[in-house]
Nucleic acid binder design. Sequence first.
DNA 1: AAAAATGTACGAACTAGTTAGTATGTCAAG
DNA 2: CTTGACATACTAACTAGTTCGTACATTTTT
Lengths: 234, 234
Amino acid sequence: MPPVAIAWTSKIKSLKCTVAGEMAERGENGRKNDPQQTREDILLVATEEFATHGLAGGRVDAIAEKTRTSKRMIYYYFGSKEGLYLAVLEQSYRKIRSLEADLHLADLQPEEALRTLIATTFDHDEANPDFVRLVSIENIHHAAHMLRSEAIRDLNVSVIETIAGILERGFEEGVFRRKADPIDIHMLISAFCFFRVSNRYTFGTIFRRDLSDPGTMGRHRGMIADAVISYLKN
Amino acid sequence: MPPVAIAWTSKIKSLKCTVAGEMAERGENGRKNDPQQTREDILLVATEEFATHGLAGGRVDAIAEKTRTSKRMIYYYFGSKEGLYLAVLEQSYRKIRSLEADLHLADLQPEEALRTLIATTFDHDEANPDFVRLVSIENIHHAAHMLRSEAIRDLNVSVIETIAGILERGFEEGVFRRKADPIDIHMLISAFCFFRVSNRYTFGTIFRRDLSDPGTMGRHRGMIADAVISYLKN
DNA sequence: AAAAATGTACGAACTAGTTAGTATGTCAAG
DNA sequence: CTTGACATACTAACTAGTTCGTACATTTTT
């Protein structure tokens, strides 16, 4: 979708120009240096390419073409194909983290807090298939790139703390009868939400079912919440 | 695991020779026609290559080298790289189907039947990481190859029928209070079992947890069963 | 002028697929 | 029970095209 990218690019650019108080649009063949924009542009295109074709299947030339800049810039900023892939991966995880933090679940009753968290996870995976695919791809590579990135490794601890808090409160208040491990609970939730997106195609093909159908989605959203809650209550 | 493959190869070969009543082992550089064995040999090697590196990442030359035959034979038997990949996929699914059938769950009480089915699914995914990886890879490709294979499409219906039967009996007997959709239940089970294997690396890295640890495995095996059962009972 | 950013063109290595020819088994005819 | 024709199984070397990465030139910014 080059038109969208171009539109977005222009928007940012004119915004910047306004702030700078100077006209500096791209003329006929005149060049305008905009390093940060170039980086972001490359990352955006690369995310789609790698999410669609995988690391080995993704083509550097294809990314370069869809970018408003050249292949040279990919190597200038990211060093190598793997470097670019890692940057894509890191950026995707960073986005997630920022979204996940502010839910204020401590204010809610344990059961309601957990239901909210589950719904959020569900919606997140549903809304970010690219992220889900990148994680799948990374698993095929035995998480080799993730291991090399400190940024990604120190992640998601907050979710576990949140769940741990909810479980403790719930147990003390007698709402939950089971003392469960927060990481296990996180996995139970994640597995279902993730699988729905990651395995959409094979599952859909075998069982002739469209998992993105709103009705199915709603039912599943309720189901995983009920399953987790009833597990903890029994 | 080349040693295993070699051992198996020899076993089959000598068996065949005994039946034929003729010695025909490979001499210095003499050739021995053995089409079926050649096919199987290629498939075995290709399964590992594709499961490890993906479709785009898997190298035909690498497969050819690890095979006791040549690259030309891959094209002779499978036509193309994609043809080989499809054959690998089909074979993997075929194996699964044969294993899944004979459990005789109709003889058991609904709850016990479901627990047995869940344990079987869990153990299966745990024991077949290659299969799990191939399915992940196929999903990255939007199940494009699967769609072209009739063999794979007409699959897994038996599991759904089995679950449907268990759910019905359970509901009639009053063990299960909830009327659930069998495909949804299958997904709830599959998602957890599959995710544990497919996302082993990223999950393990982020939460510093070894999912193949026997203790963790046992706990998870019980957890998914408890979660499904308590979901149905409430 | 120095430094940072960018574009063009190209090359070295790799890779899927092919060509051209050889070995082996089989089966009917002598 | 040979012989020879024919189909199947197989090998080695090669090719056409792709793909990552880079050298060099140029422009913009400070």
